[in-house]
């Protein structure tokens, strides 16, 4: 049985990450692993409140004040566990104790089905694929090295010019 380490302090991984607030989630991109982690509102609150100085005991009341749905220390630990699993914490959670045993189903039961969507911390991680950008391109007669010729115009790069 783990004793709840109220004085525990957690440091989120900020180095080598890009953090972007999106419409209804916080995006944390880990450059080292090329993974993007989407934190829902409650996981994002925990991420933002963890600063390497505040203890768990200090974070809980702040979280209760900010959260839109009922929350408690168990849910905080659940968020920390998920942040750790996603590789977004610099230090590890304690190895034993009750704090990490709460499943998503149990958490949903505790806070109620409606509030669960808001209260239960969720982190979805994906490997980031390469995507097309809206890079400008060279038109007829334009320089095409290193910039590409416009594909839509069916041009060819000859002697560094699009023809």
């Amino acid at each position: 049985m783990r004793t709840t380490p109220d004085k525990s302090v957690f440091v989120p991984k900020r180095k080598d990450t890009i953090v972007r607030q999106l419409c209804d989630e916080l995006l944390v991109y880990d450059k080292a692993t090329n993974k993007a982690h989407c934190l829902n509102e409650s996981a994002a609150e925990v991420w933002n409140l963890c600063d390497g100085k505040r203890t768990v005991a200090e974070i809980v009341p702040l979280l209760k004040k900010k959260a839109k749905a009922p929350t408690d220390e168990q849910l905080l630990w659940m968020a920390l566990l998920r942040l750790e699993k996603a590789g977004l914490l610099q230090n590890n959670l304690p190895l034993s104790g009750p704090v990490c045993t709460l499943s998503r189903r149990e958490a949903s039961r505790r806070v109620g089905a409606t509030a669960a969507a808001l209260a239960v911390p969720v982190i979805a991680s994906i490997l980031v694929p390469k995507a097309e950008a809206a890079v400008s391109c060279s038109t007829l007669g334009g320089v095409c090295n290193p910039r590409p010729c416009c594909a839509g115009m069916l041009l060819t790069c000859v002697a560094h010019r699009c023809v």
């Binding site: 890009i18 972007r20 995006l27 991109y29 993007a36 694929p129 995507a131």
Partner: peptide, 13 residues
């Protein structure tokens, strides 16, 4: 959605 996330990351850079 994957592209949306990728662009969000790219836009920060």
């Amino acid at each position: 959605r994957e592209t949306y996330l990728q662009y969000a990351i790219h836009s920060a850079g």
